[in-house]
């Protein structure tokens, strides 16, 4: 009887299920079904053959990643160094930028600076690359030409090729693209601070510096730490479109990250089995990170993020 009433209830809301259908189909087809491709990592899959037809080879491909030259070392190092540095630098600089922007008392000026700094967030990576290529390339890059004209340089610096400059350049690219976007979050947090605190401080004779030091910064600290913790779950993930453009045959030792490595081995060198194995390593490492981050966030924040 109970089952029957349940079925009747379900039938009564069948329209909701119909509306959910496209979403469930999309999730199943594009997220769950490709997981079956993971068997490729454990078999010697041949391109064009059946997914389950290859011979079982166990964990050989996984071992390859860690033993083959020092691939695992440099790829993981690049991924983690670039992502962690970017995370720390982007968020703290956006926080500082928001605080300073809030000190601009002329409304129109503040709005202009905000609009201008937010714009790079919306342009594509191809355009971003075009811009950096225009300004940083060795012979014709604007920055190099200006430095040479000023007599500060003999020959142009190969910013986009020389591995020495890879990390600073890519971290700056991330900063350039996200400063406006990240500062919006902090500006929202600043506008949430009670105005009475500032008024009371003024009456007590606080200078602007003191107000920032003792009111604004302490009020923003929780936002900053939550964002830092939350985003550190993503340290194994890089933006493929970004790194695919900025990696080249000269700087790969310092620039190549996991996502580009998987792409290069899989779709350029056509080693599907190996690329899938490295992809699995990435996903598993990410899952562990998310789990850890969630535990930490619960401790710090008293609430779960997932």
């Amino acid at each position: 009887m109970k089952l029957r009433s349940l079925l009747r209830k379900i039938a009564a809301q069948h329209r909701l299920y119909v509306m959910m259908l496209p979403m469930l189909a999309a999730v199943t087809i594009f997220s769950y079904i490709p997981l079956s491709g993971w068997v490729m990592a454990f078999t010697d899959y041949r391109i064009g053959g059946s997914l389950f037809g290859g011979e079982f080879i166990g964990l050989r491909q996984f071992k390859f990643f860690f033993t083959q030259a020092n691939d695992a070392f440099y790829v993981l190092r690049n991924t983690l160094v670039i992502n962690l540095c970017s995370l720390a630098i982007n968020l703290t600089s956006a926080c500082a930028f928001a605080i300073l922007l809030n000190e601009v008392r002329t409304n129109w000026l503040r709005r202009i600076v905000q609009s201008v700094s937010f714009f790079p967030f919306f342009v594509s990576w191809v355009i971003t690359y075009t811009i950096f290529n225009t300004f940083l390339s060795m012979q014709t890059g604007v920055l190099n030409v200006v430095l040479k004209d000023l007599g500060l340089l003999e020959t142009g610096i190969n910013f986009l090729g020389d591995p020495k400059y890879s990390w600073p350049v890519i971290i700056f690219v991330g900063f350039w693209k996200s400063i406006g976007y990240n500062s919006v979050i902090f500006l929202a947090a600043i506008s949430g601070i009670e105005q009475e605190q500032y008024e009371a401080a003024s009456i007590d004779g606080a200078t602007h510096m003191q107000k920032i030091r003792y009111i604004t910064i302490p009020a923003l600290a929780p936002t900053l730490s939550v964002l830092l913790i939350m985003n550190s779950g993503w340290v194994f993930n890089s933006n493929f479109e970004e790194f695919n453009l900025f990696s080249n045959s000269v700087n790969w030792q310092k620039m190549e990250v996991l996502d580009v490595y998987v792409y290069r081995y899989g779709l350029k060198m056509l080693d599907y089995s190996y690329a899938t194995a490295v992809g699995i390593i990435k996903t598993v490492a990410s899952l562990i990170m998310f789990f850890t981050v969630n535990v930490i966030a619960k401790r710090v924040n008293g609430r779960s993020l997932v």
């Binding site: 997220s31 490709p34 997981l35 079956s36 491709g37 993971w38 490729m40 493929f240 996502d259 998987v262 792409y263 899989g266 779709l267 599907y272 690329a275 899938t276 992809g279 699995i280 990435k282 996903t283 990410s286 899952l287 998310f290 997932v306």
Partner: peptide
């Protein structure tokens, strides 16, 4: 929280 990866 997971992705199948580019090859699959």
């Amino acid at each position: 929280y997971f992705s199948s990866g580019i090859i699959p």
